[in-house]
Amino acid sequence: MALLAPWAVTACDIDPPARSDGSTDSEPPPPEDSEHVTAVVVALVRARSVVEAATLSVPGLTPVLEPVATAHAAHLEVLAGAVPDADVPTTAPPRVPADRARALAAVRRSEQRLLREVRARCVAAASGDLARVLASVAASTAQHGAALADPPAGGDVT
């Protein structure tokens, strides 16, 4: 479900689990958090475009990169609705070498860049609820980056 505004993010999809006393925090986040959400959405869109370009350049990477693409899509689903369409970038797709190892390296660098942006925005967020969501995005991004760098047995990514 796409969201409509930053305040809706906290009021709906990214609420933490109900507390033990049954209360919930329904206070909307400060307006300055819109900047952080937009920055993360921009970074996610950029990272998604790198994965798409890598998949187009080296179709054999599709099964390897599918979990990364799935995570990007889920993260964007929660966050992108809070960003005005005009703020979402429509940059030209990046060029990724048609070489498996180099394409994978490009994705790894892109994920590291995404992780740095999400971490910075998490720390800077005024809303604790938003910070928690961004911390989960950061942890997921770190996991996927680690999985690409050190694939499980049988997962040929070289």
Partner: peptide, 19 residues
Amino acid sequence: VHRLRLGEVAETWPGAPEL
């Protein structure tokens, strides 16, 4: 990330399962 070393796979919402 340590969960991967313990045989788990990368997740979409680690620590926030309600999402």
